[in-house]
Design a binder for these strands. Structure first.
Length: 242
DNA sequence: GCGACAG
DNA sequence: ATCTTGTCGC
């Protein structure tokens, strides 16, 4: 694993942009983008929700069965935010809370989808890649807006996509996840290939623009923020899979 | 200097 | 990200 990596919970709050950039450059050497190994039986969506004028962060992950996409459990943790939002450094703002959420899961998912990018980043170190390296887990990103690179607008039909490139590298895809909606941006995070990220995303599309994992994660953290759901680890046992 | 800029 | 109402389209 990666026991030799500094723990972000205690350091990310007072980092300068220069120091944060240095950390991203350092972690780049560990990223693995070869084809994913093993079969996916569970996939988690990760996201956070914020209060308007508060520093409270509501972080959470929802684990779904795959490819059925039925929510089977979720982990929620309330933390205090310290690092501001700076384009290109989202990881330093959201990872501390998400690490606590991840640690709280008794059984880790086979893959995690983030509301943000993987290698589709100026230094190829989006939040999905950063988190994957820190936890040695399989991750990918699905963002709602472009962060870096250039791309041609994909066709208007669900499934149409184009490559997002930057300085000679293909760093992700602009995917039309639903007919006549703005495309979403897909990229691998860690321990999977570009193709894996696209295949997994297509498999996770329901009837909405956002794939089920991140759509559910977004829904759950918002219900957590307004008090509908409580902090902690919970299992959805409606139709018990025995 | 100017434009771009995940959440 | 968050606030916020109606409205258009499948």
């Amino acid at each position: 694993m990666n026991n030799n990596i500094e723990t972000p919970e205690s350091n990310y709050g007072q980092l300068t942009i220069a120091e944060a950039t240095a950390i991203q450059e350092k972690l780049k050497g560990i990223v693995k983008l070869s084809p994913m190994e093993g079969e996916i039986k569970t996939i988690a969506g990760a996201d956070i929700s914020l209060d308007l004028y508060s520093d409270t962060v509501y972080a959470g992950m929802v684990v779904l069965s795959y490819p059925d996409l039925k929510p089977i459990s979720y982990s929620l943790v309330k933390t205090t935010n310290i690092f501001p939002y700076v384009p290109g450094f989202l990881a330093f703002r959201e990872i501390p809370g998400l690490l606590k959420v991840y640690e709280q899961l008794p059984v880790k998912p086979d893959c995690i989808m983030f509301d943000g990018n993987g290698i589709l980043h100026a230094r190829r170190m989006g939040i999905a890649t950063h988190f994957g390296v820190l936890t040695d887990s399989v991750t990918m990103g699905c963002a709602k807006k472009k962060l870096a690179g250039i791309y041609a607008d994909p066709g208007e039909t669900r499934g149409d996509y184009s490559l997002v490139t930057d300085r000679g590298d293909t760093i992700g895809f602009a995917l039309r996840s639903k007919n006549n909606v703005k495309p979403v941006f897909i990229s691998p995070g860690h321990k999977m290939s570009l193709k894996d990220s696209m295949d997994i995303t297509m498999q996770c599309l329901g009837k909405h623009r956002l794939p089920e994992p991140t759509r559910k994660a977004h829904e759950f953290v918002n219900r957590f923020r307004i008090g509908e759901l409580k902090e902690g680890y919970h299992e959805l046992e409606q139709w018990g899979l025995f």
